[in-house]
Each structure stands twice: as C-alpha cells, then as structure tokens.
Design a binder for these strands. Sequence first.
DNA 1: GGGCCTACCGACCACTTGGTCGGAAATAAA
DNA 2: TTTATTTCCGACCAAGTGGTCGGTAGGCCC
Lengths: 204, 204
Amino acid sequence: MDKTLKRMATMHRMQVTGLELFYQNGYYNTSIDDILKALGLSKGAFYYHFDSKEDFFISIVQNLVVQKFYSHMIEPIEGQEDPLNNILNTFENSLATAEHNTLDHGFMLSNFMTEFNGKNPVIMKYLKDIYQIWEVNLVSLLQKGKSDGYVARHIDSEGVASYLIASYIGIRTLMVEGNSRTLRYQYIQQLRQYFKMLAQKEMA
Amino acid sequence: MDKTLKRMATMHRMQVTGLELFYQNGYYNTSIDDILKALGLSKGAFYYHFDSKEDFFISIVQNLVVQKFYSHMIEPIEGQEDPLNNILNTFENSLATAEHNTLDHGFMLSNFMTEFNGKNPVIMKYLKDIYQIWEVNLVSLLQKGKSDGYVARHIDSEGVASYLIASYIGIRTLMVEGNSRTLRYQYIQQLRQYFKMLAQKEMA
DNA sequence: GGGCCTACCGACCACTTGGTCGGAAATAAA
DNA sequence: TTTATTTCCGACCAAGTGGTCGGTAGGCCC
C-alpha cells in the first residue's frame, strides 16, 4: 500500500511537470531529459514507471488533461440557467486565465491536435475523444436550453456547437501573438451579438 | 544571367518541396535530409544556396507563403460588391480545397504560428506580419462596405475581422480530425447567420 | 543479520539532427 | 585547350534523441 502510494506520487509529479513542459514547448520539442532535469530524477526512474515517451504522454492525457478539461470547460457550463450565458462566462474566464500564461485547457487541446496531426494517430485518437466530449456536452446543453425556453428552437445545435468550439480555439490561437486583452474583449463582444440571434425571441 | 537563372530555379524547387513537407510534417519534424531526398539533391547543394534551415524557411515564407496568401485569401475578397458575400465565398472555397488535402494557406499560417510560438521569435515575426495584413485588409473591406451601404455602420470592424479570422482558423483546425465536409457546411451556415446581423438592414 | 523487492541511478547504445568542408563535375570565359 | 567560376557531391562532425541495462540504496519481513 505504502509502496504504491509512493509510486503514484512520483508518477504524478512526473506527469504534472511533463504536461507543463509539453504544453510550453510541444511534445516533440520536449525531451525526456528535459523533464527529468526539471524533476531532479534520472532516466532509470522514468523507464521504471513508464514504458515509453508515448505511453507517458497518454497517461498524462488520461489522468490530467481529461479531468482538468471537465472541471474548467464543461462543468462550469452546466446549470439550470441560461446556457448561452454560462457558455459566455466560461469562455471569458478561460480566456482571462489564458492571459496570465496559466495552462488553458481549451487551447491545449487544439495545440496538441495540431502537433500530432498526421504524425501519431494513436495519440490523436485520445485528443479527438476529448474534443467530442466537449461537443456533445455543448449540444445537449443547447438542446436543454431549447426546452427551457432560453434558446430559439430553429437553430442547429450541432452547427452552433462546432462553431463555438472553432471560434474559441481560433481566438486562442491568435492570442499567442500578443494583444490578448483586446482580442478577448472583441471576441466576447462578437459572441454576445451572435448569442442574441440564438436566444429565444422573448429573452433577447 | 543564365547562372542566376539556374540558381533561382534550383532554389525555387527547394522552396516548393520544402513548403510541402514543412506543411505536412511541421518544421521541426522535417529534416533537411528529408527535403533533399525528395529532391534528389545533397547537403552541399542546400548549404550552397541557403545559410541555415531557418534562413531557408524564412525565404519560403517571403517568396511563397506571402504571395499565395494574397492570391487565395485576400484578393478574392476585394471587389465592388457586397464584402460580406465575398468573404463568405472566399472562406467556403478555401475550406473546400482544404478538404482535398491541398495546401490551405489560411490554415498554414495558424499551423506554423502554433508550432513556432515560444520557440522562434524571429520566424514568428514574419508569420505575424502576414496575419496582420489579413486583418488590415478585412477591416478596410468592412469599412468600405459600410460606406457602400452593405454593412451596418454600428459594427466594430476590428472586432468582426478578428472574430472572422479566429473562426476560420478554428474550424480549419477541427477539420483535421475528419468530418471536414459536415464541419464546413455547419460553419458556413453559422457564418451566414452571423453575417445577416452585420448587414445593412435594407439588404438583409 | 540475511534476503528481497521497490525505486532510482547513470553510463551506454544506436540513431538522427543541423551544419562543415574538401573536392569534383559542369559550365562559361580566355 | 586551358582557366575560372558556379553548382553540387557526400563523408564527416558534435550534439542531442529515445531507450537499455547492470547496478545499488533503503525499507520490510523473517
């Protein structure tokens, strides 16, 4: 028991540091030695806990990325009130933390997808799954919004969901080159306009 | 004259093949040897014409990417008619060609920006410049649309331009994981709705 | 104390990378 | 034909990569 605890503690430390560096420098541009140096550990320790670099990354996705993604991008949207409003607030918050260079989990996803596209189908699969969870949740939230009278019934929920995700990761991509404050402000403004269209006429 | 001609011909061949591979596999994941093998040339030839891998890439951006970007993403939008309509058609065409795995120059930009972000500020500068050209052109087109009576005067042209670019590169990022046909359709639909809002009331 | 197993060390390996360099075809000039 | 110059060849190098492996420190059980 105690042994497994120590084992898990070390593995977790490795995963946290690994995700940080992978997110900062990219997967292929981060060597195992980089991570080990940051941790003060050795090659032996790494390959004792993980089979390979790829295996390591997948374990990070499953243990950290998925959970963080849920708690930052999905759960905040859920609720009984107006889903459009929740989406707006969640997106705004995420973009705000992104300005302070903290890990942005919505962006991380598209970042990694871009990097692995055409290179590693196995990892791509895991990333795709998360993205689809995001989409599915948005769609069902929009549908619920329809029956609750917040969202106009004629809109295409799937289309809106894809559009929302696209615009978010797009603006996030643009934000890396500075002006993030202005971009966020502009983005939220436009999103607000767009949402007026989607809202039930009575609520607009 | 003839010498410079041959020189330029070889350089151009290298740049075209280089861009293709860089776009497919990424900059850091494409070795000079890969490019040389595809061309049937040797290391010596490469370093005779270019100083370094970075210098090579920059020459590609300046000689190929900028021009392609103009002819595919900027010039088609210009014209005397409704700019919103032109934007819609241009985006739709670009996304369509993207489905057939051809080079998509709008996407290429965000792709490279993602890859170089935080790693190579010099190259980032060149990519940023192109993006800003895109934005400036969209803004002035929208402004012209206002005075021509196509676009509502109350809209924030800068905000709309950023929002358009973001949504485009976002949807393009999502398209890499399949379903590109559906995504394109959904995206154009939503964009059309969004544009109705931006249009001058009389023209809607 | 003796044995054992988990967790970690670090030298080592095969391979790839960007880049160098002396030289050899090819072409043009004399 | 000789000479110069442009263009290209390919062996080579140092640095770094992911991954292997023999070894060892320290806690735990008998």
